[in-house]
Structures are given as C-alpha cells and as structure tokens.
Amino acid sequence: MAARIATAIHEHRLLPGTKLGEDRLASIFNTSRARVREVLARMARDQMVELFPQRGAFVAKPSIEQALDVFEARRLIEPGVVQRLVRCMDNAKMRRLQAHIKLEREARESGDKRATVRLSGEFHVLLAELAGNSALLRSMRELSTLTCLTISLYESAVNTCCLVDEHEAVVTAIAAGKSEEAEQIMLNHLNHIQGSLRLEADSDEADLEQILGDLL
C-alpha cells in the first residue's frame, strides 16, 4: 500500500493536499482501517503525508519556506554524495547508472511525463544508494519526495529543465573520476530545478484595485 501511494505521489498522480480517506483506502487495498492508519502514520514520519486531528490524512503540501529548506539541504548533501561515489565507483555501479539514464531518456522521448518525473527523482536516490552510506540514502529518499511535492505545487507554466541531459553530465563526470566537476554540475542542476519553480512568497492580501481595475 505504502509503495503504491508513494509511486502515485512521485508520478504526480496524487497531488499535494489530496485527502487520503481511510475508508476509501481500506476498500481500494482490501484491508482494515487499522492497517491504513498504520501505513499513513509511517508515511507521515517520512513526510509524504500530513495528519490532522478530526480531518484525517492528506498528501503533504510543503510551504515555500519548507521548499527552500529542501533545496538548501540538497546543496549541502548531494555534492558529498557525488564525491563519495567517485571514490567508490566500479563497473557494476556505472552500469546501473547508465541503465537508469537510458530509462529516463526513453521516458522523456516517449512523452511519458509521469515516468519522467518519477525517474528523475529516483536518479538522485540511486546516487546515494551507490555511494554506500545508509544515512545519506535515508536523507535523499526524504528530500527526493519533498522535492517531488514541491515541483508539483510550484512548477512554472513553462518548465525549462532538461533533467536527463543534466543527469547524464553528472554521470559522465563521475565516470571520468572528475569529482569537483561532478559536484559543480550537481550544484548547477539543483539551482536549475529551483530556478524553474515559483518560490516567491505571495502577498497575504490580494491587490483588488489592480486585479479589478484592469477589467474596467
């Protein structure tokens, strides 16, 4: 159940703020409400879901401040992931990275946006997995999910990201053993993602004069 809900979130099938009703989930997965509550509580600990007393469970909806915190954390963590991976890279790990890049490119070329979004996030988790540090892997799983939710909420009308090309550039630098270059490409990549999002704080009060004045 948790895996299927997580996949739906990562593919933007379940959007931030979507209510996850216990009765409906119990019916869909043919299980008890107690089991549903257990799964939702675990997903809340992973920050995929938010629980509200008397209201129930909802797909998490990161604020702009939380989104900015996520990107700051990623800029601190992911260069270290790449650096560690350069040191421990071998042929088997490189084959896994290249296979993933191939899947990303195929999804993008076929126009499968949901698979493209999911695979883009999984790329960063895969880097942490191959780097061989369990704490980094746990952090990247959480940050990847929060990034996915952030993109779903704040993506610009025109998405300028070419993620698979940037991912491929990271892998090429890692394969060449160029740690500093790979780290810089990763930082540029994260800045590119953040820059494509609408993360400016909105005013609490709408400017009625401007909005309605334009219609007079």
Rank of each mutant, 00 (worst) to 15 (best):
F29A: 09
N159K: 09
R35S: 11
M94Q: 09
N91D: 15
N191T: 02
N191G: 08
L199V: 09
R105C: 03
F123G: 00
H10F: 13
T150K: 08
R55A: 13
V82Y: 02
G56R: 11
R4G: 06
H189S: 05
S179F: 04
E65F: 06
N191Q: 08
L76I: 14
V49I: 15
R75S: 10
R108C: 09
E11I: 10
E180W: 04
E22Q: 14
E168V: 02
Q83I: 07
P79C: 05
A169I: 06
H124A: 06
L153I: 04
V82F: 03
D204N: 02
S156E: 02
L68H: 03
N91S: 15
S152K: 02
I77D: 09
F58W: 02
S120A: 13
H189K: 06
R75Y: 00
E209M: 12
L20I: 08
L216K: 11
A41R: 00
P53Y: 00
I77T: 14
A92L: 07
I64H: 02
T160G: 01
L187V: 15
D214L: 13
L103C: 02
A182W: 12
L137A: 09
I211W: 03
V59P: 03
A34M: 15
R75K: 14
D204C: 00
G132L: 05
V158G: 01
D165E: 13
L187K: 15
E22S: 15
Y154K: 01
C148A: 15
E65I: 11
G80S: 14
V158K: 12
M140L: 13
L20E: 05
Q66Y: 04
A176T: 00
K61L: 01
A6I: 15
I151R: 15
S110H: 12
L163C: 10
H10N: 04
T147S: 14
K113P: 00
L103K: 09
L199D: 04
Q83Y: 07
F123A: 10
L216T: 07
A73W: 01
A6Y: 14
R42W: 04
R84K: 14
L25D: 14
I211L: 15
R118S: 06
D207F: 05
I77M: 11
D90I: 00
T18D: 06
M94R: 09
S179Y: 01
